[in-house]
Design a protein around this nucleic acid. Structure first.
Length: 265
DNA sequence: ATGGCGTACACCGTACGA
């Protein structure tokens, strides 16, 4: 069994102890992280190495930043690292990927993405978001057409359906749920990716993000905006999918919870 | 209508997130 996860950690410096504890306790084999908010020179690779993980990271000062950590004992090789979208020159560090070969022989590319937030429908950042998703979609499509098996995890900053929103009436047409964003989500999936959440393997229903403000987590005022997508053959090997809400209940949590899936080796 | 909270940077407040 292979366990893959995505987690927006909201600062790897602040969240490092929680992330390392969680990786060890949950026996995660590979994790993509978003919002590491740390330049590469200061990424805490030694802490991950000591916990038995190899690291790839693509960071910047203050904002954004992504990383991929892989359990050394689970993978026979980690190859062809991709740091940021190759087809989209961008100072904002939002994409990472590598080709993983599991000790069982199963191969897959594991990609992690931090989609732009977009701030407000119609503003410059919103159009950057749509543009960035377009570049990601083209890149994914090219790799899928080449016959690769891919898992794409990340903070998509899109709630695909009304049931992914705690108050869909209040949120209607706002950032993260607008028709334009959901349309971009559908186009991405049409490139050949399946939202593993829709495989019917998950329980219970929950969100992946809750606002720090106004006791969002306690009231379960959340959104499901973090996702794990997979190409069809890999999706057919998925055995379970869940959102682990436990880290969100800790002291000084990230505002996001990790999304996890297991895959038959 | 605004800001609520948390993080980063380094101002002692501002930018940003979702």
């Amino acid at each position: 069994m292979i366990k893959l996860a995505t987690w927006n950690v909201n600062s790897i410096k602040v969240r490092l102890p929680q992330v390392v504890d969680w990786l060890e306790r949950e026996k995660v084999d590979a994790l993509v992280m978003q919002e590491t908010k740390t330049v590469d020179e200061l990424f805490p690779r030694e802490a991950f190495n000591a916990a038995g993980f190899e690291c790839l990271f693509c960071g910047q000062k203050t904002y954004n930043g992504v990383a991929l950590v892989t359990r050394k004992s689970a993978w026979s090789s980690v190859q062809n690292p991709v740091l940021n979208l190759p087809n989209y020159p961008d100072e904002q560090k939002r994409f990472i990927a590598a080709d993983l070969t599991h000790v069982s022989g199963r191969r897959l590319a594991f990609a992690g993405a931090y989609f732009p937030n977009g701030q407000e429908v119609g503003c410059d950042k919103f159009f950057y978001k749509l543009d960035w998703i377009g570049a990601l979609t083209r890149y994914m499509r090219s790799r899928i057409k080449a016959g690769e098996e891919i898992v794409l995890g990340g903070d998509f900053n899109i709630a695909p359906s009304p049931e992914d929103v705690w108050d869909p009436v209040a949120w209607k047409d706002t950032i993260l749920v607008s028709e334009a964003e959901r349309g971009a989500w559908r186009v991405l999936l049409e490139a050949g990716l399946i939202d593993t959440w829709t495989l019917g393997l998950h329980a219970p229903e929950t969100y992946s993000w809750w606002d720090y403000r106004q006791a969002g987590f306690e009231k379960n005022h959340g959104l499901r905006i973090d996702h794990l997508l997979a190409t069809p053959k890999t999706a057919a090997a998925v055995s379970q999918v869940w959102i682990d809400t436990a880290p969100r209940a800790l002291e000084k949590p990230s505002d996001h919870a990790p999304v996890v899936m297991t895959l038959e080796a």
